[in-house]
């Protein structure tokens, strides 16, 4: 056996444990899920059939169709608002804050990351509640006469999500911005571009990889999250993850939960292909 060949076998030996783990606990569960999504529930028992009944139901039963629509609407709004809020923040930290304070500024900007995820949603429930700080303040300074309901609406879900993803996007956009040479902006301005045009035509396009990477992560994490809509949005408008958990909890309908999960996964895959040409994960 050649040295080259023994080297290869040895290298492969290093990879085997991780591969086995991934196959056993990721690939096989996924395959099981696909098979199970073709089964259906009779009474409380799962009967293995091979038809697309669950998928037909997902796209015809109003409550399930609505789940997909609600999830997509929330996710799109959250992604766009988060990008719009995070970009200026990242830009100010990268360009206006003195170099030696930048690391501290970024650490501060993402500090609430370090609260536990469940607790963060709970905190927003405190803030946005009928007797919470925001309502009390607005009533106190005379803007409102009585509290308006934000909790248990879509608005609360969106605020909770935006809070989390502004931090994430600030990180990806900032790390993109600091890699840009200041010469781009200088050149544009020397050639007579206004500050506004420099931003719009030079700096923003150059940060597209950072924006798209962050936006993709936002999309994936947002559409798959159960906690935030469950704590803040309540039960009026269910998102896809809430519907999945409902199938599991109330009825033990594993086939339907599996089918919904696969639809969710397909949506994420579509989002990936839509943004793939800008995704440069290694640059962020």
């Amino acid at each position: 056996m050649s040295i080259e060949k023994t080297e290869k076998i040895r290298a492969f030996g290093f990879v085997v444990p991780a591969l086995l783990w991934t196959v056993a606990f990721f690939v096989i569960p996924f395959a099981v899920m696909v098979v199970l999504s073709l089964a259906h529930l009779e009474g409380r028992d799962v009967v293995q059939t091979f038809d697309l009944g669950n998928y037909v139901r997902i796209f015809s039963e109003p409550s399930l169709v609505k789940g997909i629509v609600v999830s997509l609407e929330i996710t799109f709004v959250v992604t766009i608002v988060s990008v719009l809020l995070a970009w200026p923040l990242a830009w100010i930290i990268a360009m206006q804050v003195p170099k030696k304070w930048q690391r501290l500024a970024i650490m501060l900007a993402v500090l609430p990351f370090w609260t536990s995820y469940v607790v963060r949603s709970y905190s927003w429930a405190l803030v946005l509640g009928e007797n919470g700080v925001v309502m009390q303040t607005l009533i106190g300074i005379g803007i409102l006469d009585e509290p308006i309901q934000i909790m248990a609406t879509r608005t609360a879900t969106i605020i909770g999500f935006v809070h989390f993803f502004v931090m994430l996007l600030t990180l990806t956009i900032y790390s993109n911005l600091v890699q840009l040479s200041p010469n781009y902006a200088r050149a544009a301005q020397d050639l007579g571009a206004s500050i506004w045009n420099t931003m719009r035509l030079v700096i923003v396009p150059l940060t597209l990889p950072g924006i798209m990477t962050g936006a993709f992560l936002t999309f994936v994490l947002c559409i798959g999250d159960y906690i935030t809509p469950q704590i803040l949005g309540g039960g009026n408008e269910l998102t896809m993850p809430q519907l999945i958990m409902l199938q599991l909890g109330r009825r033990g309908d594993f086939p339907m939960a599996s089918a919904l999960s696969i639809v969710l996964m397909c949506i994420v895959t579509l989002a990936y292909f839509a943004s793939a040409r800008w995704l440069k994960m290694e640059r962020v």
Partner: peptide, 16 residues
């Protein structure tokens, strides 16, 4: 696995 929601990974493992 990075591109798959945690919920889906959890459900897959629960099935198995």
């Amino acid at each position: 696995p990075m591109t798959v929601s945690y919920l889906i990974i959890a459900l897959g493992l629960l099935n198995v």
